[in-house]
Amino acid sequence: MKKSVVFIILVLFLSVSYGQTNNNLNQKPKHEASIDFATFYTSILNKDLYGYNIDVKYYPFKNLATGFSFSIAQKKIDDTFSFSIGQPIVNYYEIGWVNQYDILQNEKIRIGLNLNNGIVISRLGDNDDKDRYWTKYGYQYRSKEIATNYFYLLEPGIDASFRLFSNKHYPDIYLTTKAKYRFVFGDSKYGQLNDFSNGYFGIGISIIGFTDHESQKTK
């Protein structure tokens, strides 16, 4: 079933036309950009995980967007995975390049199918034993690293955005919901590989609008 979902998403993206029709040949096309600020829920290691997400995408064509996706979360857990740990803590990151095709765009609603390719970093630390490190703001402390998993990430999903405020699309504000399924591939230093593949659900605010000036008539 999981392989079928991935196959369908990949076929959809490969079938997208990169051409763009122009209803008015005397006007230059406008290009959009979007920034999403969201909170998300997922499950790893059979634990509920809540975190923050930011997506930054650019539309080179009307319905096709591409850009950067980043998610971060942290969770104190009870499992030690046979390591000597006082207080186990997991730091979780998703870093990827997302491509999106909008199957619906109108004045009120936007729905897009997307595919996120990247990496998952899941760091197991001991919060009772802190390491000191230097930043430009001075010394900081973080949990001692015990083991870190690095996985390849393949994450198909769907976004639905509902307009809350209009500024003639320079920009507009939307409420955005996200539903994805995360597939990870690689070797695990703690936990099982399937402990890190799961659903991903988010909600937040999107700022979407044109990045160029009003179209000008060509001579």
Rank of each mutant, 00 (worst) to 15 (best):
S15I: 02
N53L: 09
S84E: 15
L45N: 00
P60D: 01
S15T: 06
T66C: 13
Q87E: 13
Y50S: 03
I85W: 01
S69H: 06
L45T: 03
F61H: 08
L14Y: 14
I72E: 14
Y52T: 10
S34A: 15
Y18N: 13
Y58G: 01
Y59Q: 12
Y92M: 07
F68L: 13
S43K: 11
S84V: 13
K75H: 08
T66W: 03
S17R: 07
L14M: 10
P88Q: 12
K76L: 07
L64Y: 09
F83C: 08
D55T: 02
T42E: 06
F37C: 04
I44H: 09
Y50D: 04
K75T: 08
F70N: 05
F61G: 03
A73F: 07
A33C: 12
F40I: 03
N26S: 12
I35P: 05
Y41I: 00
S34L: 11
K62F: 08
D78F: 11
G96K: 00
W97Q: 13
D78W: 06
L49G: 01
G96W: 00
K47I: 02
K75A: 06
E94P: 04
S15C: 09
E32R: 15
Y93D: 11
K75S: 03
F37T: 04
K76R: 13
S34R: 15
N91I: 10
I95D: 12
K75R: 15
D36M: 04
P29Y: 01
A65G: 07
I72W: 07
V90I: 06
D78Y: 11
I72R: 15
N23I: 09
A73E: 05
G67C: 04
F37Y: 08
K62A: 09
Y58P: 03
K75F: 01
N63E: 09
F81V: 01
S69Q: 07
A73L: 01
A65T: 07
T66Y: 08
V90H: 01
K28G: 10
A33H: 10
N53W: 07
F83L: 07
D78R: 15
P60A: 02
A33E: 11
G19R: 03
S82A: 03
N46A: 14
T80F: 08
G86Q: 02
N22E: 12
K76F: 11
A38C: 12
F83Q: 07
E94G: 05
Q20L: 08
F37R: 03
N91L: 13
K62I: 04
N24H: 11
L45Q: 02
I95S: 12
Y50M: 03
F37N: 07
L49Y: 00
S71H: 10
V90E: 05
L64G: 04
S17W: 02
T42V: 04
D48I: 03
N91R: 14
P88V: 03
I85R: 01
L45F: 02
L14R: 08
T66N: 12
H31W: 02
P60W: 04
A65D: 06
I44E: 11
A33W: 07
K28V: 13
D78N: 15
